[in-house]
Design a protein around this nucleic acid. Sequence first.
DNA 1: TTTCCATCTTAACATTAAGTTTACACAAAT
DNA 2: ATTTGTGTAAACTTAATGTTAAGATGGAAA
Lengths: 225, 225
Amino acid sequence: METKGKRILIADDEPDILEIVSYNLGKEGYEVYTAKDGNEAIERAKQLNPDLIILDVMMPKKTGVEVCSILRSQSLFQETMIIFLTALSDEASHIKGLETGADDYVSKPISPKVLVSRVNALFRRINKDDGKTLKIGNISIDPVKFIVEIDGNEVILAKKEFELLYLLASKPGRVFLRNEILSQVWGMDVIVGDRTIDVHIRKIRQKLGVDCITTVKGVGYKFEI
Amino acid sequence: METKGKRILIADDEPDILEIVSYNLGKEGYEVYTAKDGNEAIERAKQLNPDLIILDVMMPKKTGVEVCSILRSQSLFQETMIIFLTALSDEASHIKGLETGADDYVSKPISPKVLVSRVNALFRRINKDDGKTLKIGNISIDPVKFIVEIDGNEVILAKKEFELLYLLASKPGRVFLRNEILSQVWGMDVIVGDRTIDVHIRKIRQKLGVDCITTVKGVGYKFEI
DNA sequence: TTTCCATCTTAACATTAAGTTTACACAAAT
DNA sequence: ATTTGTGTAAACTTAATGTTAAGATGGAAA
């Protein structure tokens, strides 16, 4: 995998955590840098322009949330991914963290494997969503122009419909659980009713007029031709 | 949901700790097994193939770190999660532990609550990426695409049928007791009638059209070609 | 602002498939 | 011959999804 060259900045006031996390991410081939408080995090972020910043919420000088919103206000860090480390209890800051534009959060105590796999997942997601036009059979899906074409005929989908179709089509054949769909298309914190996904699936099927989404009962949906 | 049926092996030379920890994890619905030194830990791990192994670092016969690296060198334990119990001071073994591939640490003295919540967290997150395609002879079972193929021909199974087949096929040749099947596929708390498994087995046999599930009368079923 | 429009969500109900039980047949072991 | 365990088919129950239409929302145009 091309994790190489990806820079990650980790800010935490506990040396143990810095050590464990940087060791594990380093092992995966990332360039890892550390900071031990909020101010240092901002400073180093400006120097390094990392691809990903992992912020402890509770830090001296500035909290992770503060750091996040300061960085996000600058255009340079508009696209930078941010993960929060939070204490399990700290429910309120989860919400705040997400509001200030974090991409993910991981609850302490941290499992290195879990963190690494989340980081990998984030990069994986980002790498793909670079706006590649998907082409599966006679269907093409262009996330930049926001257009779906079947045999050259343009089909117009609404935002959610498009995102859902794009998700499924990004890994043809793979079954996506309803949970996965919810967290990817709607977001982890959003709670919507049981039938919402179905209805969107139905509309997609209807608009496309092609039977390319298969239901796997009790499991989820998959895209295949 | 399915913390049930998850097997945990705990190795520690202090009976008190074994008792407290297994009591607390047992209460959560895990199947808990114990070992009182390094050698016994390895032996039981091979018997049980647990989902998680909790190792005391300081043990007679073999240390937790030694046990870990021995197990990790075998493919069977490549994916098994491992947690170390360490004395707080023991900084050096942290590093060593990480090198041998542990997933988490808990420092002594242990708070049962903390340990339980870490274990739960591990299982919660890990549950996501446990999808490996099994290939036995001309049969392949892909839990990501939710597809079974025989000589390249796709066979569609329902959820329970698939889970049951996947379980049996995960250890070809091994006999699964009806109890085991029930707790792994259905969950420990679910109570279903006597013939339920048979009927599912029958449907699988029927759909596959290949005789790959063998009845071991009075014992259970096994997958073999 | 108000109105309009498309999108998104929800609720209620219909439909289908999955899963379970029942009842009995059969086979092997005692 | 009786007991025990499993196979089979059909009836039955439950769970999951499909469908439709009716609000809710929010942005754009009048």
